[in-house]
Design a protein around this nucleic acid. Structure first.
Length: 353
DNA sequence: GAACCGTGGTC
DNA sequence: TGACCAAGGTT
């Protein structure tokens, strides 16, 4: 397999980026970087890594922090279960492993939030263990170079690529090798417009030699999106507003939000105020003045299209129907972790109140 | 095994 | 503009 490894390793030594987590083998920091970078571009995750590493230099710092603080620092990065699992596992390591990050693959793999890929990344980079990281970059590079048309999102396809990756990593520096292929995929063998003209693999690359660049890798499943409609009620009484923490299995778990009513479609404000849910949030409507109703906007998630709007409501008297909600000073709302669409709203509309 | 979980960049 | 996809994992 040297005809593949050797050019990629050489390319890596020449073109690898100087990234903060490449200057350490501290398993905690490698773990932190890998969780942040799951399904996330390096450009997007970089600032978050710096803030987390500065705020929580050790596992115990992370374990001792309240989840709300961690989610606030994670705000805007998405896939918030990563942050919750990161915190859970920090506490778990603190309690069960005396704060020492485990140094064998199976134990690392057993930790919450760490799957096959992340376990291999930590094991290879921090502990020099021979486990291949097979991420989106690796699927792309291997499928193109070796001409493998197995779908990368089926279990049999994953097995094929994983077996090949196991062969490739034998007898090389595991951490360097894994990062080399991923970096090669991220910078050279990109999804669209790969730099084939100056590619060190082009003389042996199946996809390049057979004009299959745009056809590899193969993906089978298509993602379906569903539409949802959120009517956020921004209540206002003197200097106060009301929020609550999201619970259950829905999106944005444990983040905060304004009370809202989910509807089947973009209903009128008149219909909205006739709903029993509306009365549950605002017990007596004659005490409420609707100040402003925003236009509907759309927030895109990986599997949902959230149609949302904000209904600003001035409460002229003390209200009774808000026991489920937390009353907060408007300026304090910035201390709570919120979904991106609420962060944007807060920055636009709540800054000067 | 399929569905679900966020956000931003790209063409 | 919509579809793809980015150092994936859990249920």
């Amino acid at each position: 397999m040297d005809f593949f490894n050797s050019p990629v390793h050489s390319w890596y030594s020449l073109y690898k980026r100087d990234l903060p987590w490449r200057n350490t083998r501290n398993p905690y920091l490698i773990w932190l970087s890998e969780i942040i970078l799951q399904q996330t571009r390096i450009d997007q995750g970089m600032a978050y890594y710096s803030r987390f590493a500065a705020e929580f230099p050790t596992i115990s710092d992370l374990a001792d922090a309240p989840e709300d603080q961690i989610l606030k620092l994670w705000q805007g990065l998405g896939y918030y279960s990563r942050a919750r699992n990161l915190h859970f596992t920090a506490k778990f390591i603190q309690q069960n492993y005396n704060g020492i990050f485990p140094d064998n693959y199976n134990t690392i793999r057993s930790l919450k939030g760490i799957g096959e890929y992340t376990a291999a990344a930590i094991a290879s980079i921090s502990f020099n263990l021979e486990y291949p990281t097979v991420d989106g970059n690796v699927y792309r590079v291997l499928s193109r170079f070796f001409g493998i048309a197995d779908p990368i999102d089926t279990s049999s396809g994953k097995k094929t690529f994983n077996n090949l990756a196991i062969e490739l990593i034998k007898g090389v520096d595991p951490g360097m090798h894994n990062q080399a292929i991923m970096e090669f995929g991220a910078l050279q063998c990109t999804p669209k417009g790969p730099n084939c003209n100056q590619c060190p693999l082009k003389e042996r690359c199946f996809a390049f030699l057979n004009q299959k660049i745009t056809e590899l890798p193969v993906k089978q499943n298509k993602t379906k999106q569903r539409d949802r409609h959120f009517n956020y009620l921004v209540l206002s009484h003197r200097n106060h507003t009301w929020i609550r923490k999201r619970e259950g299995k829905d999106i944005w778990k444990n983040l905060f939000e304004f009370p809202f009513i989910e509807t089947e479609d973009e209903i009128s404000i008149e219909k909205l105020t006739t709903l029993t849910e509306f009365d549950r949030i605002i017990s007596t409507t004659d005490q409420a003045i609707i100040e402003n109703v925003s236009d509907w906007k759309i927030h895109i998630l990986s599997h949902q299209r959230i149609h949302y709007r904000f209904v600003r409501i001035q409460l002229t008297d003390k209200i009774n129907g808000t026991e489920d909600f937390i009353r907060v000073n408007k300026e304090d709302i910035f201390n709570f972790a919120v979904p991106k669409l609420l962060e944007t709203y807060l920055n636009e509309y709540m800054k000067n109140v």
